[in-house]
Amino acid sequence: MTSRSVLDISGLKVSIGGREVLRGVDLSLAEGRVHGLAGESGSGKTMTGLAVLGLLPHGARATGRIALGDRDLLTLPPRELNRVRGGEVAMVFQDPATSLHPMLTVGRQLTEHMRHHLGVDKAEARARAVELLGKVRIPGADEAFGRFPHQFSGGMRQRVAIAIALACSPKVLIADEPTTALDVTVQAGVLRLLRGLCDELGLAVLLVTHDLGVMSAIADEVSVMREGLVVETGPRGQVLREPAHPYTRSLLDALPDSSPEPPGSAPEPPDARTDSSPDSPTGETA
């Protein structure tokens, strides 16, 4: 399982208005791997993602190193950073309203990106856009192409934002809570899509999520943040089963339903339930 590291964050510090919100973050993303990032609300997960894209709030100061190959994104000239952003590195924002322009149809937002970064023609861009909308499970993708963001539900907007981030086949995807607005069955589809892109195309993903179930389903490595620092990093199984840091342990203990068996999952009438082993993957449809 040796995979090439594509993005290396080291000693990243960010301060806003004299307050240090990141205090030396180290994180590394590798080709074809999902790196899960959990942590307390306000611990700096979003700021870490924004720093990679050069999108920190006004007045923020960043030091340290964010290496994409041999380039340091923290010192890259704005024009080159612009090319990286949305091209090689894409981000799904925590708040889908930030990813989407309210006055443009989602089709336009999808295709403009592609034409700008990939140089494809209008028809090809449209075909690709409709295909992507279908992949993120938007019903009636062809018709949805012409709709405005406010004509979608919250979870659909989140999925459109994912489609836009994937439009230019990035090498690195930073996904900040990309499935919080999704029900668990649609979430399963999106997780399968992301996993497939890693396995087949070598996408490197930083997945910010507070949902440890999601983490367990898709992450290869897991890091946990607290108060501007990464307090624990390791392989998924290790961090979720034998957490070293007390905060990680407290998160696992807080899960409201860690005790009894999961709810009835067999698609048979109530009495004829044939409980499949909870660990076996069910309903493979990928």
Binding site: V214, L240, R241, P263
Partner: peptide, 26 residues
Amino acid sequence: RALLGAIPRPDGMGVLPAELPGDVPD
């Protein structure tokens, strides 16, 4: 049943939860 069955479990096993078959309706 499908909904409750698709809740991912934080067991560290790397199991992707089941999707509902078919298209999301319009």
